[in-house]
Amino acid sequence: MNRKVGAVLNAVLTLVAFTVIPLILPSYLPPDLMAALSQGGFDLTSFLNEVALIGVAMAAIALVKGLVDESSPIHLGVSIVSKVFWLVFTFTVLGLGNLAGLGVTTFSIEMEEGVNTVVFDLSLFAYLAVATVLLKIVHSILEFRDARSKAARTPEKAAQA
């Protein structure tokens, strides 16, 4: 029961942090800032919509992950998928919506007297995120193996799995 409540809570928190807040954020930002970002070629609303969409997927994954038994292959599969979604989220945030940029973001701002091009190179953090996610996947597999051997030692748990 406690595990189920935890799963629901985790899913709700994920949904609030990654979907609800990004969706209501534009209404709290000064219109001048929105206009300046838009002039700089950055579509904040579209970026936040992408984050919100990833948030929905991550909340659903958190819910399923929390509800299924840890020794179940479904738990392992969902766990790996959640790591991949986390990577997608990191790439989206580092690239400010440009997933394919892998941490390199480019903006071009057209001004009356010329053009201003800005490039942020945060690819180091994209590679760090890839390394972390790969290690997390290995960690999930190790945890799954531990849960399986633990369940095999406990007859009733083995029956559930």
Partner: peptide, 9 residues
């Protein structure tokens, strides 16, 4: 890690 700004006036 880096930042580049090119202004063409």
């Amino acid at each position: 890690v880096g930042f580049t700004n090119t202004m063409r006036i």
